[in-house]
Design a protein around this nucleic acid. Sequence first.
DNA 1: GTACGTGATGTAAACGTTTTCCATACCTTA
DNA 2: TAAGGTATGGAAAACGTTTACATCACGTAC
Lengths: 348, 348
Amino acid sequence: MSGHKLSSLAVDIRRVAAEAGVSIATVSRVLNNPGRVSPQTRERVLEIATRLGYRPNPNGKRLRKGRAETIGLVIPSPQGRFADSFFLELLAGLGEGLSDAGLDLLVATCPPGAEELACYRRLVEGKRVDGLVVARTRRYDERIAYLLEQNIPFVSHGRSDLISTPYPYLDVDGRQGFYMATQHLLHLGHRDIAYIGAPHELNFATHRLAGFQQAMLEASVPIRPEWLLEGDLSEKSGHQLAQSLLEPPELPTAILCANDLMALGVLRALRERGLRGGREVSVIGYDDIPQAQFSDPPLSTVHQPFRDTGKRLVEMLLARLGGAPVSALQEVWVPELVLRGSDGPPQT
Amino acid sequence: MSGHKLSSLAVDIRRVAAEAGVSIATVSRVLNNPGRVSPQTRERVLEIATRLGYRPNPNGKRLRKGRAETIGLVIPSPQGRFADSFFLELLAGLGEGLSDAGLDLLVATCPPGAEELACYRRLVEGKRVDGLVVARTRRYDERIAYLLEQNIPFVSHGRSDLISTPYPYLDVDGRQGFYMATQHLLHLGHRDIAYIGAPHELNFATHRLAGFQQAMLEASVPIRPEWLLEGDLSEKSGHQLAQSLLEPPELPTAILCANDLMALGVLRALRERGLRGGREVSVIGYDDIPQAQFSDPPLSTVHQPFRDTGKRLVEMLLARLGGAPVSALQEVWVPELVLRGSDGPPQT
DNA sequence: GTACGTGATGTAAACGTTTTCCATACCTTA
DNA sequence: TAAGGTATGGAAAACGTTTACATCACGTAC
């Protein structure tokens, strides 16, 4: 109304400085290094800055400081539809801490496969991000190798066992998770336990399988090779493999699935045969996705706290950007077995 | 080996210019305005630029051009877990077109509610984005109002009926979708149809309800007020409302749900009562989320092509950024009714 | 032969910050 | 009182681009 609209369009540091009768250096200091300026001027500049609604132009800042003030996440988008909201939860967890730290979150999506690395290249070589979080690690993860080689800060959600150089990671111990799950089944009296694993190139596939194997070994229960399957993590895949598993003559009394989606597929296969999950056949999944609560029967599974994980990942990344040593940034969390309705003692 | 590693660390436009024996202006022109430079030099500069692996520093460019070269998406993160992967699909759709256009995608997450607008403010007033896509529109959407007022380019996924100023949107016609769904139920012979709606502040809630009402009205079938419910879009909510609906004496023969998650909750409630969805009670949802294929019975629903939608949204936003008039950027798509197993003729 | 368009290039000024120096004034201390 | 530290603030140089403007050579039309 009284303010001249046009002149207010560009309120830069110069404008604030002029208005306050100080140099732009002082304004900058007030905002970035408040201790270096006297309380009176600081006060005045602050007052004027807020009155004018001054927001430092991030591009000026970024150029000057040589940083992107941005961290990146690349999401591989499946050909089909996203069935599992892992990345969404991760995003939610990341977002929180990041905006507090004044960092932006750059998300790139790309078809999985070869293009993925190109996507990382674009982000780091194009100086678009200061750091990255990588998720869904593979046993030998070329993304991690690349980032290490480029010496750019990153944190990994999940480890990459075949990479020997130390790097920061936060992993949830799938080995432990399935060790517990298997023990639970064994205690219930199961001996005929089938396993539907994840694609072996995924790092967690190995861990989860190892947990299963260890528990079986310790209990001296043999694992039948024909009951050791590998799915692609989709519902459909679980469904299909379960069908083969449920062919007579011999049925397993329990099926352990490397993720919930496949476990849900298994439950569906059971229903279709008139078998009831948790009665005739026990099923345990991994992840604790939201649908797990509502399946029929509700799915027993290993809970992964994706969102907390996301939060912690940004803390770690921030620490890394701040120069923390890698050795202080390696964490393995212990997951929690949550029992719902899909497990029970074997039918005799 | 032969190359000096340190000097290659910072390969900027100056370096390329020096190497090619031209001015930096020429290098810049080669990259941005190739026609303005002679074929020979263009060739030479190009060759050197690729040999050196030159990538223009985005911050220099952004500062100079006064653009962020980034578009924003803010995702409201629910208190609980994300159950529905709508935003992921949208992201996948957006990502594709954006990186082709050389734009980055900035994602912010925030708790829904008052902070949401603050999040938008931060992005636009902080000049962090050139444009935005807003999703999950409300009937009066203050985000749209704000963006219009700020005169910043954006595209909306879904309309906001109470905002009269024209703005670019891409909507899927929920009215039409539920008109078709209701007609289908009516043709099957249903008369006692219950409706579980979405929170009324959401814009699509009105549309979907209107489609239902219109079909019922045209068929002269009365809508029973006690069968007109409103849920919060969660599975739990659908489950709970279905329970109340299934109290005798009078049961609806069909239940229409404003989204799939609630419909899945309804199916669960039916199962718990020993009723079979599609037989005793028909259920139709909306969205066609991945789980819909695998529910028991598979859910009949109205398909929304989220990913295509995302793709188109970036095309529209790009057009908008390029100066296309709003009037050319308003689209309403017609959804598709996909019938699976959860609908059928009423039991008499 | 002069004037003039045209095409190709260079010069230099931005864009909005942060930060390194300096300069000044003041206070402390011997 | 001189010397030296300590706050405080300004001037100016970056950061890496793009682009308006100037320059220059060259052909062409009169």
